[in-house]
Design a protein around this nucleic acid. Structure first.
Lengths: 224, 224
DNA sequence: ACAATGCTTCGGCTACCATCGAAGCATGAA
DNA sequence: TTCATGCTTCGATGGTAGCCGAAGCATTGT
């Protein structure tokens, strides 16, 4: 059944990413859906078998596009039904998924992952938050020293707080700023977990595969 | 996500069964999908939450129908996509013709003729209907007195309404219930226009030749 | 030739969800 | 009232499908 194909969240994300009519590679679609290439491969095979997408081989890439406008039309219709029940998410902030997921806010991590990180830190008592004021706990200091080799004396600054809550543009929730936020982002880059996108002017932060895994191990919420 | 709702085979079968625009009871939908009532109940709750179907309570039955034509349209579209890959579903046909044409529903006339009767009464302003509530007009009272010797005072009952819309089992449209519906059916029997089938337990109503003619003269829609 | 990249296949794990039995309500009938 | 019917809720189970790690092809670049 075709609907079952569209029903899976990962596949739905892929299809949505293809709704603009352009073709995307398997890897791009994997990133779009937030899954590994091998999982994406499995999904794409099913979508192809279901006649929803068709591949075009080009070198060592495989570009996928929606089969035709009929498919796009049905997807539109489904989105319309979803919108009526309020099950559709409201578009806030940037539309670029990569930008929504992880980006640079001044010098610290923002986007879904940034919000997720602070959420988890709060949940595990690594920090305590009162409104916009955040303070690092003793437990948090041990955590940072152990997993990220960050010591408290690296964070002191004459005019800047160690921790600060920063309202996230796309998520409309807080992520972590301050010298700690900056230090952690810097550490992620040094560990090759993540790097700013090469495109000039882009604020997108790309996580490596291992980086994403390591990050999820420390701050994951199980929803990815 | 809406597509996930349609994606499940059991739910898909239910929705397909509702595609003709008629309403079905929860039990019938369960049988249609080949699952137990409790499983069907769970599915129907989800479909309702997703805005795909809406219920109508009638006695101890719960009739479900597709919310509107948009839903049907999207389902059509999905079926269209499915058809291209070769997997098409088959639709099971109806059943006993005599039962569908005329039968007893509690104590009043149901089936094709029952629906047809209410249709004509509504069309000729003998009754006015708002959803499930039906009221007899002055014109209707004159009509009943003249042609069926039924006077309004025969119809009053402490706990039962004079007119009530009852969802027809086979036609899935409303026919006339209440004390008036019962009185009319009784009158048909007294006039030897129709009689319940002799078979024990059968709900079939057999019309005589003259009865059929007389009935058609009063309530016919010209399609017979 | 070798290495790097992109994608796929295979195997095992896990989580979710459809499913059903049993019991609980609600409505209508006797 | 009591009983029967229709439907729902609860709890437990099992099958399935998504997911990833590791390894295998395929293509391109050096």
């Amino acid at each position: 059944m075709v609907a079952a194909l569209v029903g899976d969240p990962a596949r739905a994300n892929m299809l949505t990413a293809l709704m603009n009519g352009r073709a995307l590679t398997a890897s791009e679609l994997a990133q779009e859906a937030g899954i590994t290439p091998q999982t994406a491969s499995s999904h794409l095979a099913k979508l192809e078998a279901g006649g929803l997408v068709e591949p075009e081989k080009q070198g060592r890439h495989r570009y996928y596009r929606l089969t035709d406008d009929d498919v796009a039309g049905v997807l539109e219709g489904l989105a319309g039904l979803a919108a009526r029940t309020g099950h559709m998410r409201v578009r806030t902030g940037p539309k670029d998924p990569a930008l929504r997921r992880a980006r640079i806010c001044y010098d610290h991590l923002a986007g879904d992952l940034g919000v997720q990180m602070l959420d988890t830190m709060r949940e595990r008592n690594l920090v305590r938050q009162k409104k916009q004021d955040i303070e690092l706990t003793a437990e948090g200091e041990r955590f940072l020293a152990k997993h990220l080799q960050i010591s408290p004396d690296m964070l002191s600054h004459p005019r800047r707080p160690v921790c600060k809550a920063c309202l996230d543009w796309s998520e409309r929730r807080h992520h972590l700023a301050g010298t700690l936020g900056a230090a952690m982002m810097q550490r992620f880059a040094e560990l090759k977990w993540a790097a700013r996108d090469a495109t000039p002017g882009s604020r997108v932060v790309n996580f490596t595969r291992t980086g994403e895994k390591q990050f999820a191990a420390l701050f994951g919420n199980g929803k990815d």
